[in-house]
Amino acid sequence: LTVHVGNVTYHFDNPEQAEEWAKRMAKKYQGQIHVKDGQFRIE
């Protein structure tokens, strides 16, 4: 699973971990989480 934050990409084996990280990053950067094809993108 991949989480994109700006132009930085993080890889996770565990979906719960990826989702948790995406939520934390979205809160930190006050962005929206977009989920597409098993990838999380924070914008």
Rank of each mutant, 00 (worst) to 15 (best):
Leu1Ile: 13
Leu1Phe: 15
Leu1Asp: 03
Thr2Phe: 09
Thr2Glu: 11
Thr2Lys: 07
Thr2Ala: 09
Thr2Arg: 09
Val3Trp: 01
Val3Leu: 04
Val3Ala: 01
Val3Ser: 01
His4Ala: 08
His4Ser: 12
His4Pro: 00
His4Gly: 04
Val5Phe: 13
Val5Gln: 01
Val5Ser: 01
Gly6Val: 03
Gly6Ile: 04
Gly6Tyr: 04
Gly6Asp: 09
Gly6His: 13
Gly6Lys: 04
Gly6Glu: 03
Asn7Glu: 09
Asn7Arg: 10
Asn7Thr: 10
Asn7Leu: 08
Asn7Lys: 11
Val8Cys: 15
Val8Pro: 02
Val8Tyr: 12
Val8Ser: 07
Val8His: 13
Thr9Ile: 14
Thr9Gly: 02
Thr9Ala: 12
Thr9Leu: 11
Thr9Trp: 06
Tyr10Arg: 08
Tyr10Cys: 14
Tyr10Ile: 07
Tyr10Ala: 02
His11Ala: 05
His11Glu: 08
His11Ile: 08
His11Lys: 10
His11Arg: 08
His11Gln: 09
Phe12Leu: 00
Phe12Gln: 00
Asp13Val: 05
Asn14His: 09
Asn14Gln: 06
Asn14Trp: 06
Asn14Ala: 07
Asn14Leu: 12
Asn14Phe: 08
Pro15Gly: 05
Pro15Gln: 11
Pro15Lys: 13
Pro15His: 12
Glu16Tyr: 11
Glu16Pro: 01
Gln17His: 10
Gln17Asp: 13
Gln17Pro: 01
Gln17Asn: 06
Gln17Ala: 14
Gln17Arg: 10
Gln17Gly: 04
Ala18Trp: 04
Ala18Asp: 01
Glu19Asn: 06
Glu19Ala: 09
Glu19Ile: 13
Glu20Cys: 15
Glu20Met: 08
Glu20Gln: 09
Trp21Ser: 01
Trp21Arg: 00
Trp21Ile: 02
Trp21Cys: 15
Trp21Glu: 02
Trp21Ala: 05
Trp21Tyr: 08
Ala22Glu: 02
Lys23Glu: 09
Lys23Asn: 08
Arg24Gly: 06
Arg24Leu: 14
Arg24Ser: 10
Arg24Lys: 13
Met25Gln: 03
Ala26Met: 05
Ala26Ile: 05
Ala26Lys: 02
Lys27Ile: 12
Lys27Tyr: 05
Lys27Gly: 04
Lys27Trp: 04
Lys27Gln: 11
Lys28Met: 10
Lys28Glu: 10
Lys28Thr: 04
Lys28Asp: 04
Tyr29Arg: 02
Tyr29Met: 08
Tyr29Cys: 15
Tyr29Gln: 03
Gln30Asp: 11
Gln30Arg: 11
Gly31Lys: 05
Gly31Trp: 12
Gly31Ser: 09
Gly31Arg: 03
Gly31Asn: 04
Gly31Leu: 14
Gln32Asn: 06
Gln32Lys: 11
Gln32Glu: 12
Gln32Gly: 04
Gln32Met: 08
Ile33Ala: 03
Ile33Asp: 03
Ile33Gly: 02
His34Gly: 04
His34Tyr: 11
Val35Pro: 02
Val35Glu: 04
Val35His: 04
Val35Thr: 05
Val35Ala: 04
Val35Gln: 05
Lys36Arg: 08
Lys36Cys: 15
Asp37Gly: 03
Asp37Val: 00
Asp37Met: 00
Asp37His: 01
Asp37Cys: 14
Asp37Ala: 00
Gly38Tyr: 02
Gly38Pro: 08
Gly38Glu: 05
Gly38Phe: 04
Gly38Asn: 07
Gln39Ala: 12
Phe40Glu: 07
Phe40Ser: 08
Phe40Val: 14
Arg41Cys: 15
Arg41Trp: 15
Arg41Pro: 09
Ile42Arg: 03
Ile42Thr: 06
Ile42Glu: 07
Ile42Val: 11
Glu43Tyr: 08
Glu43Trp: 06
